Each structure stands twice: as C-alpha cells, then as structure tokens.
Amino acid sequence: MPRNDSLKIGELTDTSYYILLCLTKAKHGYLIMQTIKNLTNNQFSIGPASMYTTIKKLLDAGLIKLSSESSPKKKTYVATTKGIELFKKEVQRRKEMIEHAERILNQNEEI
C-alpha cells in the first residue's frame, strides 16, 4: 500500500508520528524539526519539504490545526483531539509490533 494511504487506514508514518508527538503543544515548523532531532539524539530528522508536505496531510485529515498562537509570519500548529486519539492508538499498535518481534526473536534464540 502506498505510504500516502497510511492516514486513510489510521496508521502513521514515522514522520507523521514524530510530528504529532511534537504537536501535543503548539510549535512552529523550525521548532518541530529541532524538537525531533533533539528527542531522537539526531537519529531521525525531517527536512522542511518533507515536514510541510506531512503537515498539509495532517491538516487535511483533521489531526492537527493552526494554533491560536499562529501569526502571518510564523504558522504554529497543534494536535487536535482526533490527532491525539490516533497517536495513542498508533503507540499501542507499535508496542504490539515490538512484542511480536521480541517473541519471535526469543524463540529463535532458544533453538
């Protein structure tokens, strides 16, 4: 399935995941990128083009919105209730994926 369809089926790409995580509090674009780099110790970074493409998709899906703190010069975004709910489901889905992997890897070590 193309990555563009992930939001339609209720799953987040890594980029969407980190942007939504950052937007539990209102942030502008540059601060989103810096927060992700700091949070992941520079192991994951998002460039401006990818970030703004993803922000548009998240806006269109109603998962984020322009914050009341936004200004014409600096757009500030924040997650919506719908976005937070989807994010929580995604965290649970990823936890289950890790549990599955650990179970299989542990079985393979026993062989």
Rank of each mutant, 00 (worst) to 15 (best):
L23P: 06
T13L: 00
Y18R: 05
N42M: 01
T13D: 00
F44A: 04
I104Y: 12
P2T: 09
I36N: 03
S50I: 08
V78S: 03
T40E: 12
E85D: 04
S50R: 09
K89P: 04
E69P: 14
T40D: 11
G29Y: 11
T54L: 06
T81K: 15
K65W: 00
K75T: 07
I32Y: 01
L23Y: 04
L58H: 04
N42W: 04
G29Q: 12
K73M: 14
A61R: 07
I98L: 13
A61C: 07
A61W: 05
N108Y: 11
S16H: 15
F44I: 09
N108L: 06
I36C: 02
G83Y: 03
N108D: 00
N41A: 10
Q34T: 07
G10N: 10
N108E: 00
I46Y: 01
D14L: 15
P72H: 09
P48G: 00
T35P: 02
G83P: 05
A79L: 01
E96N: 02
A101T: 02
G10L: 10
E69W: 15
E85S: 02
I64C: 06
F44G: 04
L39Q: 07
E96C: 00
S50E: 08
M97P: 09
E99G: 00
S45F: 05
S50V: 09
E110K: 07
K82C: 11
N108R: 05
T13H: 00
K89T: 08
